[in-house]
Design a binder for these strands. Structure first.
Lengths: 216, 216
DNA sequence: CTGTGTTGCTACATGTATGTAGCAATGAGG
DNA sequence: CCTCATTGCTACATACATGTAGCAACACAG
């Protein structure tokens, strides 16, 4: 019969620093998604790993550094996925339909988001209490993506003809709608499928202006 | 950072409860917009009004109630402005162009937002640290607006002809784009004008499908 | 001038999270 | 079996915001 008085914590399994670090970041991300960033306390993350606070401070300078590491890891993963979304601008010899290019880009984006939902939830549906650094990092990448998209549209819009839309606003609209679709996929994955959005996009593009080039 | 309230140590001007309440809410909103909701502490709000904490507790039950009051006031103001945005669904006798209806609604929405930017910044660009209750209230109103918009589109889409778009997704797309435009107006009012978005919308609508009904 | 209630202030008690110092357990190598 | 660097734990000190109790100043009625 164990004496109940001391109530000492049994030793948690010992891990090398690198593994512990990943485990802590996984826990921090899970807590952030489930209960918001305010719940991502050093103590909370430690407890979630069955460990105490000093262990966390052995890996990260402080709470801010821990969150920064979480964002850095997320950014890295997101950018790795995005590499396939933006195609290179086709050269003069290439025979590419601008509408197909856009449609494939959007599809690739939505599939990328669906393939790593937790990473993208942090970015596109940030949980309560997200520190300002997160929004700054995300917005910085948004600007990069928007510029890239704008470059592709500057190539594609004159080639497909169609209405004389403001290319800047058109780029922003496409971007906003793509993120909106991604949010729906992330928030209610049971209800939405990537194809619904690609179908909608295809219909909308077909209806816009002179339409898709005739095949052949 | 001007403190705007010189009287610190000596007695602050005495105010009746109702006036004090408005003053405290104004201060809370200003702090939230400038430094985020985490800076909206009972102490911070009190200091901003040149007053001490117990004065705040004399008006609001606690910090949560103070924020709830701020959100309630903002919701009230926003809904008052929105009353003019959504027109009634035209009857069989009325001769209304669906595209005009949509264009006027979007214009009215963007003008409403521009007319009371601070209220709408809380809603559309919530500062850091916003409590979950805010998002819940805003999302509840979003659902109402989306349903209303959907009703109007169910009336208008068959009347204007055009591509066979999914009406639900189309309503969401319009809503998302309108909020995106409003965000641009709020975040960078120097750069953006309502007309840029109405022009864009007009061009896009004109390009979509069979186009505007011929006049006459 | 002088009561008298209202409004605001000082001071305290509490709760929660951060970050640190020093001790204890573990387990691989001799 | 013993050594000892590594890893984790207990306990403390600190900071900050909340919420409360009781006192002090003001303004107006008489």
């Amino acid at each position: 019969m164990p004496s109940a008085t001391p109530a000492k914590k049994p030793y948690a399994p010992r891990l090398p620093a690198a593994e512990r670090r990943e485990q802590l970041l996984d826990a921090a991300q899970r807590i952030a998604l489930e209960r918001g960033f305010h719940a991502v306390s050093v103590d909370g993350v430690a407890k979630a790993c069955g460990v105490t606070r000093p262990v966390v401070y052995g890996v990260f300078e402080d709470r801010t550094a821990m969150l920064a590491a979480l964002f850095a890891r997320g950014e890295e993963r997101a950018l790795a996925g995005l590499a396939r979304v933006f195609p290179a601008i086709p050269g003069p010899g290439d025979d590419v339909d601008p509408d197909d290019l856009l449609l494939q880009g959007i599809t690739a984006y939505l599939q990328t988001v669906s393939a790593d939902p937790d990473t993208w939830r942090i970015i596109l549906v940030p949980p309560e209490g997200a520190p300002p650094e997160l929004e700054q990092r995300v917005n910085a990448q948004r600007r990069v993506m928007l510029r890239t998209l704008r470059g592709l549209l500057d190539w594609g819009l004159p080639r497909r003809g169609g209405p004389p839309v403001d290319p800047d606003l058109f780029a922003r609209a496409v971007f906003t709608l793509a993120e909106g679709a991604a949010r729906l996929l992330l928030v209610d994955p049971e209800r939405w499928r990537v194809e619904q959005f690609t179908d909608f996009t295809r219909t909308a593009l077909a209806a816009l202006g002179p339409g898709v080039r005739p095949p052949g």
